[in-house]
Simulated assay, not measured.
Amino acid sequence: MKPRTSGSVIRLAAPLRALAQRFSFLLLVLACVALMMVGKIEALSVDNARARVTDAFAPILDAISRPAATAARVVESAVEVQNAFEENQRLKAENARLLQWKQAALRLESENASLRSLLKATPEPSVSYITARVIAAPGSSFLRTLVVTAGRRDGVRKGQAALAGPGLVGRVIEVGEWSSRILLLTDINARVPVVVESSRQRAVLAGDNSDQPKLLYLPPETPVQVGERVVTSGHGGLFPPGLPVGVVTSAGERGVRVLPNADLSRIEHLRLVEFGLPGTDLDQASEWK
């Protein structure tokens, strides 16, 4: 009797299973709708039930996440070790190159000293400088100057070069007891003898109250390329040769434009340098006026 009963149950359950499989998607949709309605009607109860379920599964999720987090940390550590190794190799190679340059510089310094002694060359004048803070930029469309907190009492003199980090900014044109005024390279009154470093072609850097002064008196056939460095030539007696001024940004029908190395709109401190050159304190300097 028992086998016959179990067979009857199986035969009765088979259509029900087929019916359930046939309408399973619809049943799931209805269940979702019912849960949404319950959530709207009994929001507090649903939130409490969700919180209990979350609390129940939190330890399991934490246990599962720990191996994943550990694996991620291991992978991250391996990547950091690899990056550190590559950085170490790069720094070693760079250090080796710097040591070579150091040896070359020491050799050239010794050779230069020996040649100077043979030629009885006059030593370069000593260089002194004063660091001053910019306190005002009372410029306008027709004047580009800076005011700094250093004056006659600090040893500032007219004609001293004003430098900011990467290069020449201008020169001292007015000295008070406690402050001084700096005429910038971009001012329309500024004129600086310069040389294009690669071609060694001389020119005059002339400000025109724009952010990029222009080069004057360049021969038309001079091959000036964008990106070439421009440095002081040393003519005129105010600045020594070789001070960085800027780089060529354009060379065409509108002339050659130079972008100063220093961002003249963001200067906070300046070095007022005394190079000990004759003519530094001349008011009517041919370089600038």
Rank of each mutant, 00 (worst) to 15 (best):
L168R: 05
L168W: 00
L218T: 07
S180M: 10
R52P: 02
P223H: 11
R181C: 12
V273M: 05
V230L: 08
R271I: 03
L35P: 00
S77Y: 07
A162H: 03
Q284A: 14
V169N: 03
L216Q: 05
G279Q: 01
Q160L: 11
L215F: 03
L19E: 15
S45Q: 14
L183R: 14
K158H: 07
L282Y: 11
E177L: 14
D281F: 04
L277N: 08
N112L: 14
D187C: 07
G176F: 14
L91Y: 02
D281N: 11
L163H: 09
A285R: 14
L205K: 07
L108E: 11
V29Y: 08
A14T: 08
P278S: 08
V194R: 01
A72M: 15
V226P: 05
A34N: 07
M37A: 15
A51C: 03
T232S: 15
A63F: 04
R11C: 04
P123C: 10
S210A: 11
L26S: 12
A34T: 14
L44T: 11
A14L: 15
D55T: 04
V81A: 12
T5E: 14
S114L: 10
A69C: 02
E109A: 15
V248W: 06
L218R: 00
S45M: 12
V195A: 09
P3A: 09
I64P: 00
E253S: 10
G242Q: 04
G170R: 03
V194H: 00
V192M: 08
R97G: 02
R271L: 12
N112H: 09
A164I: 00
L282V: 10
Q89P: 00
I135T: 05
L26H: 09
G170A: 09
R97H: 09
L27T: 10
V273T: 09
L115A: 14
L119E: 08
S286N: 08
G207L: 08
T232K: 04
V256K: 00
T280H: 07
A113Y: 00
P278H: 07
R107K: 11
R200K: 14
R191N: 06
V172C: 10
K2G: 12
G234R: 06
G176M: 06
V247Q: 05
R257C: 03
E124G: 01
A251S: 15
P125F: 02
V196F: 13
A72Q: 15
T131D: 14
F142D: 10
Q100R: 09
I188T: 07
V273R: 01
L98C: 01
M1Y: 06
L238C: 06
L44K: 13
A72P: 02
S8C: 11
N189R: 15
E253Y: 08
P220D: 10
S199Y: 03
A43Q: 12
S65K: 09
P193F: 12
A164E: 11
